[in-house]
Design a protein around this nucleic acid. Structure first.
Length: 664
RNA sequence: GGCGAGGUAGCUCAGUCGGUCAGAGCAUGCGGCUCAUAUCCGCAGUGUCGGGGGUUCAAUUCCCUCCCUCGCUACCA
């Protein structure tokens, strides 16, 4: 028996479930149901990722233990499944004892094989950033982001020898076209791997700094850090190494992730598996983001879409259908209620729902609500069957490769063809003419095709599918359905079955007001109080800036005075300048800006200026530009120049100004 | 700057190993039917298939170049 194993990422418990989580889960559920219908033995895994600094800190703020905190948020994710009609076979948590043991087992194994080593790491650690800075990166000894003095931590850590497997991974990806799909992400990973040396992965944190993690089996003073812990869920959930499930399902592992976690899944994970002596997963399937209209969803914008609210408003079926129909595999998609309602009305209410209603109604008018027996078929019938067969084949082909949008598009060719067939065959005329034989054939053609459609829709809209089948007098039996054969076989709908007199599965819905600027808050507010476990009441009010959607179509791009005021332009004197040791276009310039210390600015001027050209000159500097490391050296500003097609000149003051003098 | 993916009807997109390939859905207009959830069916469109150049008997489809968008990345700041 062939098998199928699908996973969602385990969701980090630092935020509540949103549209993105919902989509991944629905996609995984739909794929599972599809493969079940194809007669395969399936396993659908999801869960939560619960360790790390962020959780430790958040729980502290909430006055809870990390575990209590994680329990709460994890519960929200666990509850999300039923809310969406999704039925995972297992919900794993990285705090599960079995998972912890498994992670340690893998660590031990890799450690013993020599691919984990102890090495120096770090230096200046900023707790705000949760990361180390090198001396060069610091700004006056301060963290460039937080302007606080990082703590110097001379700390050693364990590293995974990821670099060792770079060549192997490139080769493997080249040999297996479907390993990462769609191809655009495969290309992205390949270019990433081929563009430079892969660095080893730091996989530990000393307990002195972080205790909320899994202890390293070979060193009790350290806990395991992030990805090594999280990724292993995919095998720990299968009871690796001894589990029966592991043997059955690991060879057919299909991961689903959003594009933001491509690298860990496409690079870290396969090399970890290789190091641990495991085969790579079968495929990594990468989908895009759901944008809200055309903007990235984010808490600060207050435009986070609550899945629960959408399901409550439009129903699970419409919600699932919309998501799976609207997002082209791999690409970003746009979520709006108008678009959802558009799909609901056009595809579900008008095309599919109305088809069911009109055919069922006619079956009652003409055949006392019983499925008639078909008589001889005409060429028209044969043509419809061919079209139906192709539509179902295409549906299955696309669905198997995660292209749900294309799959549904294909199936709808059949839906539309049936509506057209009704018009052409005109059952009401046949009825008037008392042509019962032909009428029965026509109705049977319709009813049997509707049954096929209903079956194919089970992965997408399980409950609606079951209801459609019930309306046709059938009851859904997973064990009896053979989806793979549906395109080819005919006549599975028994004559004589009693069908419903009407159908109203997908009532039309009024188009919502196109969301005005106030809408983001309207969306976010109920979501916030609905579950709000940690009630961050103090969170600053989410001010949705009057943004792009409303932007006036002014002719030139003008800015307000306030925008200009954001720039802190200062005059400063160049104390010294030197070539960047590791770059030939960059100069490292020290500029006195009247501050305690001179500023170090890395400027891309080396091709037009020599260090001598700058030294001693007064220059205009953008003083509040976010610091940025350039080729290893921190740059704390930008030196302005004026240029035309031919020459580049330093921008300076006509007469001497005190260092730090403001440009206004 | 480099690499990658794209720029096709008002909108969302499909498609072409070069020759009925100029398409679908939505939206718009007109017509038809009456079984139906003011639903369904038909017809009508508009498009220099991003700009320019080249190869060819023939290019939207191949090559070159330029412009724009998105992603990753960089010695952009």
């Amino acid at each position: 028996m062939s098998r199928f194993f699908v996973t969602t990422p385990i969701f980090y418990v630092n935020a509540k479930p949103h549209l993105g989580h919902a989509f991944t889960t629905i996609l995984a559920d739909a794929m599972t149901r599809f493969h079940r219908l194809m007669g395969e033995e399936c396993f659908f895994l999801t869960g939560t990722d619960e360790h790390g600094d962020k959780i430790a800190k958040a729980s502290e703020e909430a006055g809870q233990s990390p575990k209590e905190y994680a329990d709460q948020i994890s519960g929200l994710f666990r509850d999300m499944g039923p809310l969406l009609g999704a039925k995972p076979d297992h919900f794993i948590r990285t705090t599960d004892p079995e998972h912890i043991k498994c992670v340690q087992k893998v660590l031990q194994k890799v450690y013993e094989s020599g691919d984990i080593y102890f090495g120096e790491y770090g230096g200046h650690y900023c707790f705000g950033c949760e990361r180390f800075y090198t001396e060069k990166e610091l700004v006056n000894g301060m963290c460039p982001d937080h302007k606080t003095r990082p703590e110097y931590i001379a700390e050693k850590n364990y590293f995974f020898r990821m670099s060792k497997y770079q060549a192997w991974l490139i080769e493997y990806i080249n040999q297996n076209p479907d390993f990462i799909r769609p191809a655009r992400y495969r290309n992205e990973v390949l270019s990433l791997l081929e563009s430079g040396a892969l660095e080893d992965l730091c996989i530990s944190r000393p307990k002195s700094r972080l205790t909320w993690g899994i202890e390293l089996p070979f060193d009790q003073d350290f806990v395991c850090y992030v990805w090594f812990d999280a990724l292993i869920n995919y095998v720990s959930a299968l009871n690796y190494p001894r589990g029966e499930k592991f043997k059955k399902f690991w060879p057919v592992a299909n991961h689903i992730v959003a594009k933001d976690i491509l690298k860990p899944h496409a690079v870290f994970w396969p090399t970890m598996l290789k190091a641990a002596g495991l085969a790579p997963y079968q495929s990594l399937n990468v989908h895009g983001y759901w944008l809200v209209r055309d903007t990235k969803m984010s808490k600060s914008l207050g435009n986070v879409v609550s899945p629960k609210q959408m399901v409550d408003a439009y129903g699970i079926s419409a919600f699932r259908y919309f998501l799976l129909r609207e997002m082209a595999f791999g690409s970003d998609a746009s979520f709006t209620e108008e678009a959802l309602v558009g799909r609901l009305n056009a595809d579900l209410a008008n095309d599919l729902g109305n088809l069911f209603n009109r055919v069922l109604s006619m079956t009652h008018k003409y055949f006392e609500g019983k499925v008639p027996s078909p008589a001889a078929e005409t060429e028209e019938d044969a043509e419809l069957k061919r079209l139906g067969r192709d539509a179902m084949r295409n549906f299955q082909g696309h669905f198997a490769e995660f292209r749900t949008a294309r799959a549904l598009e294909s199936l709808w060719e059949l839906v539309r063809a049936l509506n057209k067939y009704i018009d052409t065959a005109a059952p009401w005329t046949l009825f008037k003419n008392k042509d019962k034989a032909r009428l029965g054939t026509v109705m049977y053609m319709l009813l049997e095709h509707m049954r096929k459609i209903a079956v194919h829709l089970w992965p997408v809209m399980p409950e609606a599918s079951v209801k459609m089948l019930e309306q046709l007098g059938c009851c859904f039996d997973l064990d009896k359905v053979q989806l793979a054969k549906e395109p080819e076989v005919w006549g599975l709908l028994d004559s004589g079955l009693a069908v419903s007199p009407t159908s109203n599965l997908f009532p039309r819905v009024d188009v919502p007001e196109p969301a005005p600027p106030a809408a983001p808050e309207a969306l976010a507010a109920p979501a916030a109080d609905a579950e709000a476990p940690k009630a961050k009441a103090a969170e600053p009010k989410k001010k949705a800036p009057a943004k792009t959607a409303e932007a006036p179509v002014g002719p030139a791009e003008s800015i307000e005075f306030a925008d200009f005021q954001k720039l802190d332009l200062r005059v400063g004197t160049v104390l010294s300048a030197a070539k960047h040791p590791d770059a030939d276009k960059l100069l490292v310039v020290q500029v006195a800006l009247g501050e305690a210390e001179p500023r170090q600015i890395v400027a891309g001027l080396a091709d037009r200026f020599s260090p001598e050209d700058l030294t001693g000159k007064q220059v205009v500097v953008v003083a509040n530009l976010a610091p940025r490391k350039l080729r290893g050296l921190m740059s704390q500003g930008m030196i302005l120049v004026a240029k035309d097609a031919e020459v580049t000149r330093l921008l300076t003051s006509a007469g001497t100004v005190d260092d730090g003098g403001k440009v206004a």
